[in-house]
Design a protein around this nucleic acid. Structure first.
Lengths: 345, 345
DNA sequence: TGATTTTGGTAACAGGTGTTACCTATCCCG
DNA sequence: CGGGATAGGTAACACCTGTTACCAAAATCA
């Protein structure tokens, strides 16, 4: 006959023949408790037999914390783009949290949802801290969270906000990609950004592009700079525009793999060979990048590591240790689309 | 000066000049409570002013439920494959849950983690119910969960288990894809499965393939049947094998878009034109399918809808309503790789 | 021996909420 | 005017845990 009710610490105490206090002391390894080995053994045995797990709500009520961290996932115009990173980010985050016994609450926020819902996560005792992905500078909720001293870690930077964040080093990544093209001998190098210039990451990647060219003594023509908008369609359109530029650039740095996919498609449509007639480098290293035609040279964004770093940052913050923002290093993955590197995945 | 402590219902009561009980009755819209309009107004006003949210732990302690559902995400050999669906699934699930005031806990399980961790989610009061993705038939945890009467909904079927599940109609989807190729005049149609035959979904999609051919009076040659293994590399290899078959098939149904990506790559390497020399149809409709070269005709798997359905199933189960398994319908998305349909995304 | 420490353990409280049983006016109706 | 119903509201309990303060007995020390 199945036991339907869960076991409480009282049940464990009774089975072990001790008080409930003793059960708690033993199971939590209380440091200053004097309990005989024999008693400890009996308590553990009873807990195991009853499959006892402390009730999360009761524990969090008495401890004043939930041992839970929420990932606040803003849905915006860049939905499909950011969704690609969600699995890696989530699992890295969960990995960091679980290592310390914390749980992970996932909270997507639709654009029309009221501000309260984010506040409720913290003030309603659903989570001890909030990891906020896709934050916006003008968001009044962020200010309110700061005012209420809610522990917050941002995924993605917000200029002018003193909140700790994790992000990839966009400038260095873009510079690395463009430097690679320069080293291969290209001089007319265009860029298609990942997003419109309102976005911090787009500006940073553009800056990396400029930096690399400046070091090589090259001043980019205005027509070389095209703006993507997260998706493949925007990349296709931007590339079509670039193909009209005279003299035609010999290489393009596309600051997003999804946008690059559209760009590759436009080149295929136009019968322009990659990399012979046009070299292409992407950004993100999505799994699909290894199997585009031709395989895409790209800058790796370590989604899992970002999640893990965000989790660690939050744990530090919750434990009163110093929490310093992290800008993770990048790495160039060389494949065939740039003209160096192997032609097979 | 920032208020650091959160407001409790007691604070609201004091500000509104009523008792704590009245606050609770008003805020929860208790059906049989006689409270004057004026008092209600004062309570709501006070709650708003104090930004009061009921403490989740206290509430769940007294109500005996958490209003939380956990998604148990098993990491297995098909990691990359299933990860692609995670964002859609999660957001559909969250959408269904939030509509009823439920929260979503995300719990990835690494292969080496002990069985307890899943049990703890339910018995430790972390969640009222478990949505289990990537379940295995022989998993002893599933049996234990059933024994303890823990509400469970499976994402993906497990033969021989009487648990409610949500899944896509694999047989019908595969049949639809192959029928489309038949209608275009193909007779020598091969298949590359999404996974090895141990996997239920692989067997079901293969069955759909056979069904469609049988209806057309065609008996597939054994060499037409190749097994993929979730990733692009397996698709490339399988396609290379198919290219050796004489007479060469004129069309392939690849039961996974990722595997199809590898297959397209192999065709490109071999200089075989798609769709002129070989028609290709995929399965999943990943976002990238619209931008492969050429764009991939494929069977759409509605990840968001699956998540939403799983959420609703769970809510029904938790509310004592009948919870019946769902096999969601599929839809063929016609693009260029099959030879009918437009050549542009 | 008497005083002090150590060992092994427990009683009792706090934490915030939902709900039940109960209470007191006021109103309605015969 | 009496009695019952109703409106408006409250005191008190239960939910389960971690922790503090405390106690009794045994061991140690002066």
């Amino acid at each position: 006959m199945p036991r339907k009710r869960r076991a409480s610490s009282f049940d464990v105490a009774r089975l072990a023949g001790v008080s409930r206090t003793t059960v708690s002391l033993v199971l939590n390894n209380a440091p200053h408790a004097h309990i005989s080995e024999e008693t400890r053994r009996r308590v553990w045995e009873a807990a195991r037999k009853l499959q006892y797990f402390p009730h999360a709500a009761a524990r969090s009520l008495v401890e004043g914390r939930t041992r839970t961290v929420a990932l606040v996932w803003h849905r915006g115009p860049d939905v499909n783009y950011r969704d690609v990173f969600l699995p890696g980010l989530l699992q890295g985050l969960a990995s960091a949290l679980h290592a310390q016994g914390y749980s992970l609450l996932f909270r997507p926020i639709e654009p029309q949802e009221p501000d309260d819902v984010v506040l409720e996560l913290a003030l309603g005792g659903y989570a001890d801290g909030l990891i906020i992905s896709g934050p916006k500078a003008e968001d009044p909720v962020l200010a309110e969270l700061v005012r209420r001293e809610v522990p917050v870690v941002l995924h993605g930077q917000v200029p002018g906000l003193a909140l700790p964040y994790v992000d990839v080093d966009n400038v260095a990544g873009a510079k690395r990609a463009v430097s690679h093209l320069l080293r291969l001998g290209h001089r007319r190098i265009a860029i298609i950004t990942n997003a419109r210039p309102e976005y911090v990451s787009a500006r940073q990647r553009l800056e990396g592009y400029r930096l690399a060219l400046r070091e090589a003594g090259i001043t980019p023509l205005p027509q070389w700079i095209q703006y993507g908008d997260f998706d493949e369609a925007s990349g296709r359109k931007a590339m079509q525009a670039l193909l009209e530029v005279q003299p035609r650039p010999t290489a393009v740095f596309v600051a997003s793999d999804l946008v690059a996919l559209g760009a590759l498609y436009a080149l295929w449509e136009a019968g322009v060979r990659v990399p012979q007639d046009m070299a292409v480098v992407g950004f993100d290293d999505l799994p699909l990048a290894a199997y585009t035609i031709p395989p895409l040279t790209t800058v790796r964004v370590p989604a899992w590591d970002l999640g893990f770093a965000a989790g660690q940052l939050m744990l530090h913050r919750l434990q009163g240790r110093p929490a310093v923002s992290q800008r993770l290093p990048i790495e160039l993955v060389v494949r065939a689309s740039c003209g160096s590197g192997s032609n097979t995945p």
